[in-house]
Amino acid sequence: MELTSSITRVTVPAKQGRAVRARAGDLVRVSTPEGAQVGDLFAFVAGDPAEHLSAAHTRGHVNRLFPGVGEQFVTTRRRPVLTLVADTSPGRHDMLIPACDPARYQRLGHPGWHASCAENLATALEGLDIGTATVPQPVNLFMDIRVSPTGELEWRSSPAPAGAAVTLRAELDCVVVVSACPQDLVGINGTETGPLLIEVGAAQ
């Protein structure tokens, strides 16, 4: 499914986050230009940020741990907000791991301040004069988390090659936030963190 030529493009610099508005029916494409960069994806219903994409509700809705093409992401009110309509990556995306935050980096032994997806979310929403009291568990695009037969989690480097992209269709008017995950203490982002690209437009 392709976007029209009339689209909005927003670069998400490494270790930062950006927010875009999408109308129901719009396509939202998120790509990793340099490859192997995880993107924390959040979505908030327009006009009501208390209703947002919920990874936990989505797992129950699709009866799967990880998302697949054709499946919907639902909100805290169990309404579809985004549908994954195309994926040119190897298809490894995570719905188990929460957004990194200052406490995460403190526990990993990092001294002082470290950029985080939780802070990136707040900053991106502030740019649209939107506030939220919670940090929802995101959908972690291009993130390769495996579950062993005995239940342990395996944190692997993202297998997404340069240019890999996912395309989502907005089912509701919403605000989509993408954070180029700053995690550089656990090897999920290849050899170094990089940018992401968000494109929003109507379907052809």
Rank of each mutant, 00 (worst) to 15 (best):
P195A: 12
I145Q: 07
V30F: 05
Q106E: 15
V166M: 06
A36T: 10
M1Q: 05
R169S: 09
A133F: 10
A103C: 07
A170C: 07
I198S: 03
L96N: 10
T75E: 04
S148T: 15
L185S: 04
E2Y: 01
A56L: 14
A122S: 12
V28A: 06
T191Q: 07
A124G: 02
P138F: 03
A170P: 04
H110R: 13
A115H: 11
V175P: 01
L82S: 08
V177Q: 01
V135R: 11
F44G: 08
L197W: 05
S179N: 09
G190S: 05
A19N: 00
R79I: 07
A99N: 10
T58P: 12
A115I: 07
P80Q: 09
P49Y: 10
E126H: 15
F44A: 10
T8M: 12
S157K: 01
R29I: 00
V200K: 01
V45G: 05
V176R: 04
S116I: 00
A133R: 14
P102N: 12
V45I: 15
T167A: 01
P13H: 07
R23K: 13
V200Q: 00
I97V: 15
P102C: 12
W155Y: 15
A86L: 06
S6Y: 07
A160V: 02
A170N: 02
T132A: 09
G151Y: 10
P33C: 04
V177M: 01
T75C: 08
G131R: 14
D40F: 06
E154L: 14
V30E: 01
L65H: 10
N120T: 12
V10G: 02
I130W: 04
V74H: 12
L197S: 12
L84D: 02
Q183Y: 02
V178W: 05
V45M: 11
P111L: 08
H114Y: 03
T193E: 01
V81S: 03
A103W: 14
L96H: 08
T167V: 13
F142A: 09
D101W: 05
E34L: 13
E154G: 13
V147E: 12
G70N: 02
E171W: 04
G163W: 13
S6F: 05
L65Y: 09
L197F: 00
G190R: 01
Q204K: 09
A124S: 13
S157C: 09
R59A: 14
L84S: 03
V81R: 02
A124H: 04
G163N: 12
A115G: 06
N140W: 05
L185F: 13
T83L: 02
I97E: 06
F42N: 00
T58D: 08
V10E: 06
L82Y: 09
T58R: 08
G70I: 06
V186I: 12
G112K: 07
N189S: 00
A22P: 04
N140R: 05
Y105T: 05
E126A: 15
V12R: 07
G91H: 08
P80V: 04
L196K: 05
E152H: 15
L168I: 02
L168H: 06
R78A: 14
